[in-house]
Each structure stands twice: as C-alpha cells, then as structure tokens.
Nucleic acid binder design. Structure first.
Lengths: 126, 126
DNA sequence: GCCTCATCACTACATTTGTAGTTGCCATTT
DNA sequence: AAATGGCAACTACAAATGTAGTGATGAGGC
C-alpha cells in the first residue's frame, strides 16, 4: 500500500474527480471540474502530471490510444493522512479538542446527532 | 474584529507561543520554541515579520525599548477559520462526515465519549 | 495530401513557505 | 574610543503551489 502523498488544495479537486469516476482523460477531468473550478485544460494537465509524479495517480491507455488517469491511492488513506496532519497542526494532535470544536461549531440534525452518538459508543468497544 | 488571516504551518507554532504568553520579544519566542522547532533566531524573526504583515500579530515596545510581539487575532477565530477550510477541502464542507471520521478513527476514553455525547446533545438545543 | 484539432510534453512565472545569512546600528564593556 | 553583542532591517534562495502558454505530433476531415 503506497502511503498517501501530500496533496495540495487544487490537486485535491482533481483527485476527487478521479476518485468519483475513473479512469478519465485529461479533458474529461477538465470538463468534470469546469462547473466548480474554471481552469484551463493545461492547468488540469499540470495538476494531473504533478499527481502522477507524487504517486497519487497512475496512467493507462484507453481504447482510442489516449492517456487516462486513475487514482493510485485510496481516498480513505488520503483523508486519514490529511486529517491526521490537520489535527496535529491545529489541535496539537489530540482528537478530543477537535471533536469538541466541531461538535460545538456545527449545525447538526437530530438524526445526525443520534448517529454520531452511536459511533462514539462503538468507538469504545473496539 | 479582524478576520483571521491565513497562517502557514511554521507560523502557527509561533502564534501558539504568543497565544500562550505575550507579549514576548523575538528572542523570547525563539527560546520558547527551541525545544520543539530548532530554529535559528532569524528564522523566527522572519516568521514574526510575516505574521505582522498579515495582521496576525501586533508589536509594542517594552520597558527596555525593545520590540515585543503579541497576537492581533484570537486563537479561537483562527482555529475556526482553519477548521472551516479543512472541512471544506476534505469533507466538502459537511460537518457530519468529518465528525464520523474522527469519531471512528480516534482513540477516546469513556470519559471523553461521555463528554462528547453531552456536547452533541447541547448542540441540538441551540 | 494538407489543414486542423486534440494531446502531450516542456517551459514559464508570480506567490507562498521554509529556513536562513548579511549588514547596520546602538549600547555596553573593557 | 575600539571592540562586542543584541536587535532590526533587508536580502537570499530553493521547493511547492497556482495558473497557465508554447511547440511538436499524430490522426481525422475535406
């Protein structure tokens, strides 16, 4: 399992697109991102290349002979890595103050609260 | 209330030192950070200057006429801003998946779980 | 067969970040 | 007064990031 490389903010959008649907060509990714990020295709290509360099993406040829991109690392692993580093930076590595912060500062529905409480209980038996 | 400026990772350590004790001179901050970050004093000075430029710190003269630094923004505001941006980047801005992630991936004591569950309940009545 | 368009691989360039070095100035110490 | 030691201001410089432009190439359309 390749450990999660460090993925910058713009790069993250590209990864999301490919985690959601892959493989995709550069222009497909560009189109997929068009509504949110209004990037030139070359911008997306640069990001794709950097991600390949970092080992976050792999490439493959599709039927028509053009290059396509697909994730080389699992989203969950990257989320975990980013979350870890965030927790480290802002909350000194402690989960509790982090959870306190978000429990206090987020608007949640009764449903969500119920679900989260259940998860917290499960957390103990593990 | 000045909105929280964007504080980089190294800068964050400097801010922490000053949120904890302030005002402090550049060399005091350097000394305070010495155990963790083994930075040259000039490195700390650069970070201090950048933070002043960004409006995260203010300066004042102390009795002996040397410059001291102190926070211009509240820690809580910065934590909120960083947290917001993290939640945006990684969890698409939704608090629930974030809380789910940390509820599942953190080791918590029974005490902490109890406390968090209470906070979640309070969250609803507000 | 020639033009055009999509792809690709390179190159570009300003900002931000990490991590200092250099120099000038002022007060204190011989 | 000359040297020293701290602090301040400015400069340095490479890597990472954001955001493209340029030039070569090959395949399809006319």
């Amino acid at each position: 399992m390749p450990n999660a490389p460090d993925i910058a903010e713009s790069e993250w959008s590209v990864m999301e697109a490919l985690w959601e649907t892959s493989p995709q060509t550069a222009s497909e990714v560009t189109k997929a991102l068009r509504p949110t990020m209004n990037w030139a295709e070359n911008t997306v290509r640069t990001l794709l290349m950097r991600l390949v360099d970092k080992g976050a993406l792999k490439t493959a040829e599709n039927a028509s002979g053009t290059r396509t991109f697909l994730p080389a690392v699992k989203r969950e692993a990257c989320v975990r890595a980013e979350s870890e580093s965030f927790m480290q930076r802002i909350f000194g590595g402690a989960a509790k103050p982090l959870l306190v912060h978000f429990a206090q500062n987020s608007k949640l529905t009764a449903e969500e609260v119920k679900e989260l409480k259940k998860l917290l209980d499960q957390n103990l038996n593990s």
